[in-house]
Nucleic acid binder design. Sequence first.
DNA 1: CCTAATGTCTCTAGCAACTATATGTTCAAG
DNA 2: CTTGAACATATAGTTGCTAGAGACATTAGG
Lengths: 146, 146
Amino acid sequence: MLTIGKLGAEAGVKVPTVRYYEQIGLLPKAERSAGNQRLYGRKALERLAFIRHARDLGFTLEAIRDLLSLSDRPDQSCAAADAIAKAQLAEVESRLARLMSLKAELERMVVQCAGGRIADCRVIEVLGDHSLCATDHRHPEGEHIA
Amino acid sequence: MLTIGKLGAEAGVKVPTVRYYEQIGLLPKAERSAGNQRLYGRKALERLAFIRHARDLGFTLEAIRDLLSLSDRPDQSCAAADAIAKAQLAEVESRLARLMSLKAELERMVVQCAGGRIADCRVIEVLGDHSLCATDHRHPEGEHIA
DNA sequence: CCTAATGTCTCTAGCAACTATATGTTCAAG
DNA sequence: CTTGAACATATAGTTGCTAGAGACATTAGG
Ligand SMILES: [Zn+2]
Ligand SMILES: [Zn+2]
Ligand SMILES: [Zn+2]
Ligand SMILES: [Zn+2]
């Protein structure tokens, strides 16, 4: 049995994060030692590693919650799981497109600045006027910015 | 003079967001009408449009605060503004690199799944085991995930 | 065996950047 | 003059954690 610290170290997750996952019901309530400390077995480690990996791939905790409950029903069709992964792929692709556009605009700004006074700074000028941009990089409503 | 609603519409910013920007000191406290409603002039509109555009380019509010205070000093060197833009470009490039890696892994997962039962689902399998991944896409510590 | 250093416990609050809700006031149209 | 939209304030919620306070548990050294 692992203490929370060992568990976190094995899975690459910080201790408060493990407790947080338990709090929001992503991990089941852990067994406790005589002294009230959490104890984990191999199954909990696998579950936490799954969560960590899915987070690393950008899935939200909500999506991970669904994926975990699917993975608890091995005999069902995996269509729902695949749909979640495809949605995540689409999300990543859309962020990618936007970030490429941002990169282009930022590069233009930085390159065009001759490095003089603020009054002549291309960075400041472009930030004040989107019509100076080459692409329409604007934030589609409802999309997360990061 | 514009009311907050008109101002927001002109700049493409929601009304509560305008009030939020005022609250955190990004916009100066607005003049008020006899009936205590906010009134804005052209300068405020320009400032809000600047903020909106910078947000659209992914700058944080902290960076925008700095850029705004720089733009209030037109005679100073623009080196600091350029540095902020370069840092933002670097940030975008690093996110881009990570997202490309995520996209590759997600595509692999989705393509490899034959679409049967959960027990055989490649999506679930890969999520449980990073060693099945082709690249090291893992989250560098301290970086934002989105 | 005692002590000191970690590690763990709970609880609360904070971060970014808003968004939503509730309740009340002002304004413009008809 | 009444109605309804737009405005006002204040508070709480969102996501995914992270940081702190103050108390208890465990472990390693002397
Ligand atoms: Zn410049
Ligand atoms: Zn632009
Ligand atoms: Zn599948
Ligand atoms: Zn992986």
